[in-house]
Design a protein around this nucleic acid. Structure first.
Lengths: 191, 191
DNA sequence: CCCTTAAGTCATCGATCGGTGACTTAGACC
DNA sequence: GGTCTAAGTCACCGATCGATGACTTAAGGG
């Protein structure tokens, strides 16, 4: 009675809730009953709509690729933008972590690993590689910088290292500029 | 009759096999029956020795803290040593990944997160912080460098990014030196 | 108003999980 | 060789999981 009978709307709500569960608890830690319970629907409906649990997982992860910065501004501002998005944005909708970091928890499954790689490559490396233009090991430098951003996010949220967890964006920006300059050989403004 | 009745030896074999399982399949993906089967022993024995599954997990992870570089050489060589150990060493005994990276898969459990943090702090940050001596944000710089090393390991093994995965140690060392110098403000020899 | 269609539910299955307690057997010691 | 202790086994419990198929009910059209 709380909701009308709307197949597409129910499907969408299942996907949304499952995304949060999968991100927070991982694939194995999430049960179909949990997700159905969040939506207020019978678990059997999940199998009617998605065939299986892994079908739900695949579709949920496919729809979560949205949050990626588009290269709309000058390339020099990209590192700061990505850092802000990866680390400091409010991901409370995704259980407090960037979806990419959360997805790492399920990287034991080969499907997840493939999607993870695809998302990192298309969403981050393609954009970041502009910064490495003119350098010798362009791709390697790009991936090394992406590794740093990812590592910062992980130390902050998944490990909970003391200093980095409490660091503010303003404290991080100077070091970001220094490392970016060292890797890309060009000045990167902090503002 | 394959093995004699030796409590300590059986305990050790259970720990060793569980370490590999936990690393490769995560906490939830590993069953007590799996581990006992690897050792060729009854699953009930696991509970007799470790009380519970999480007891086995805790003890297994506590015992895997061994692989940490000791600061025996000059501090300038630490980054290269840690990179070699984290990324290029042969971790086939641990399913091909450094235990720390593997442990990230189970970082949904708070116990694992605590142990992970402790291991990163004591095993890596304490050693690395010598490099940041004399700098302003000593701890922050140290954690930022550790984040980079961890991120490199993750991109290589858990994500499988194209260029970094195939990179050799010799290709990475110059960039390691550049970033270390940018973060710590002191030259870091590549050899 | 009724009847069809599809959205959603219910009961249940088989497998697997962590965990427990009673039991069996191997090995050292006298 | 008998006996005692501890290493290891066996049978089983309750809970939970993914999954299936038969069922019920809400909504729209004639």
């Amino acid at each position: 009675m709380a909701h009308k009978r709307d197949r597409e709307a129910t499907r969408a709500r299942l996907l949304e809730c499952s995304r949060l569960r999968f991100a927070r608890d991982g694939y194995d830690g999430t049960s179909v009953r949990d997700v159905a319970g969040d939506v207020g629907v019978d678990p059997a409906l999940v199998f009617r709509y998605f065939g299986s649990k892994s079908g739900l997982f695949t579709e949920a992860m496919a729809g979560s690729s949205a949050p990626v910065v588009l290269p709309d501004g000058p390339v020099e501002e990209l590192p700061a933008k990505l850092l802000r998005q990866l680390v400091f944005e409010d991901w409370s909708e995704y259980a407090g972590e960037h979806p990419l970091i959360a997805m790492l928890r399920s990287s034991g499954h080969e499907d997840t690993k493939d999607r993870l790689r695809q998302q990192v490559c298309e969403g981050y490396l393609d954009v970041l590689s502009q910064l490495a233009d003119g350098n010798e090991d362009k791709n390697l430098r790009t991936e090394l910088f992406a590794a740093w951003l990812l590592g910062i996010g992980i130390l902050r949220t998944a490990v909970g290292t003391p200093t980095l967890t409490k660091a503010t964006e303003e404290e991080l920006l100077p070091h970001l500029a220094a490392v970016a300059e060292a890797l890309f050989g060009r000045p990167v403004p902090t503002e």
